[in-house]
């Protein structure tokens, strides 16, 4: 018999899932993960998660790198040509804005995507053990870890809170 088991509740309605999450948190029962077919601010709020993830720091890093790259390319190419014309700056700074802006956007986006993939550990070859194909379609999943002895209590709680199916998976 396993020490720890995972209980997976499958919900058809978002409202039921949100109440279940809130109830489990009130009872201080640790929620392993929640699956949803779409992004939901209700689930996030019920879990007490912040609106923005750490991905924004990747965006910032990309933006800074992009601006520096654009400025460097514009200055370096202008300096290399050595077009010395009376009354004009050898390296004019106004047109630097365009390459700096474009590289800022480009690298910010690439870093943002890279950050999202890194934080989600994607690409992944295998789907998570507790994942059910219906979670991308019309079902919400709630995964809770507990001791085997608590299985009865947890599964009853899930059913009472509106879960249509409750499964037990041994770790």
């Amino acid at each position: 018999m396993a020490d720890r088991i995972a209980v997976i509740g499958s919900f058809a309605e978002l409202r039921a899932l949100v109440s279940a999450v809130e109830a489990f948190r009130r009872e201080a029962i640790g929620i392993a993960t929640v699956y949803s077919p779409f992004q939901s601010s209700e689930i996030r709020e019920a879990l007490g998660e912040p609106a923005l993830g750490p991905g924004r720091f990747f965006t910032l890093a990309g933006g800074v790198t992009g601006i520096l790259t654009g400025v460097f390319l514009a200055w370096y190419t202008a300096a290399q040509w050595r077009f010395i014309v009376g009354g004009k700056y050898p390296i004019p700074y106004v047109p630097t804005v365009i390459p700096a802006f474009e590289f800022f956007i480009l690298l910010s986006i690439i870093f943002t995507l890279g950050g999202m993939l890194f934080l989600n550990r994607m690409p992944k070859k295998r789907l998570p053990k507790y994942y059910d194909g219906r979670f991308s379609q019309d079902r919400f999943g709630l995964v809770v870890y507990c001791a085997d002895s608590d299985w009865g209590k947890i599964s009853r709680m899930m059913t009472d809170l509106g879960a249509q199916e409750v499964l037990k998976v041994e770790e």
């Binding site: 949803s36 993830g53 991905g55 934080l119």
Partner: peptide
């Protein structure tokens, strides 16, 4: 890419 739609994935996805 192995998307599973966990709440963490959606958070990072939403931010991105």
């Amino acid at each position: 890419l192995g998307w599973a739609g966990s709440e963490k994935s959606w958070k990072h996805y939403g931010t991105a």
